[in-house]
């Protein structure tokens, strides 16, 4: 079957088998390997991407179900060389260790800040509660998201590119 969607602002159309999961479509067909693939059972959250601005676990969404929707992967966060504040925050506050959970964590953080620009620690922890950091570096992840909330400077440019 043929599917069309917007991925990081770019319209794409591909021929796929209906059983292809969104995570594999993104990684294997589109070659956007920033989206990681972990538990396959919607538990670990490393495969999180944004679908129409909302975080979803792409191992449990069919690529066919994303037909007609807008997907944002970690590759869509930065604008050219300009990092999204969330990416900058993960750098400033050492929010990543092995980096496996990082793309999903950053997309969830972006979606959180889009809805709630000043989350408290509890709200950040709740937002990422469906994702696991196998290095157990949650405290620094929370600090990274807070850093991004406190430095929204780049948001005007990075917030737009999702739908542009």
């Amino acid at each position: 079957m043929q599917i069309s969607m917007t991925v990081n602002g770019e319209d794409i159309t591909r021929e796929i088998e209906p059983r292809v999961l969104l995570v594999h479509f993104i990684r294997d067909v589109l070659r956007l390997t920033g989206t990681h693939w972990g538990c396959d059972t919607s538990n670990c959250g490393t495969c999180v991407v944004l679908m129409d601005g909302l975080p979803v676990k792409s191992c449990t969404v069919l690529a066919a179900m994303a037909d007609g929707h807008a997907i944002t992967t970690v590759e869509g966060l930065a604008t050219g060389a300009k990092l999204d504040p969330v990416q900058q925050g993960f750098m400033e506050e050492h929010g990543l260790q092995c980096g496996f959970c990082t793309p999903g964590m950053m997309l969830t953080a972006r979606a959180l800040l889009d809805r709630n620009p000043h989350p408290d620690d509890g709200e950040i922890r709740e937002a990422i509660s469906g994702q696991m950091c196998r290095c157990t570096g949650y405290a620094t992840i929370v600090r990274s998201v807070k850093w991004a909330a406190e430095h929204p400077a780049a948001q005007e440019t990075t917030g737009e590119e999702v739908t542009a």
Binding site: P55, V56, K57, E126, A127, S129, G130, Q131
Partner: peptide, 9 residues
């Protein structure tokens, strides 16, 4: 019920 991301779907 599940987690906030699963609850989106």
């Amino acid at each position: 019920i599940a987690d906030p991301i699963v609850r989106n779907r």
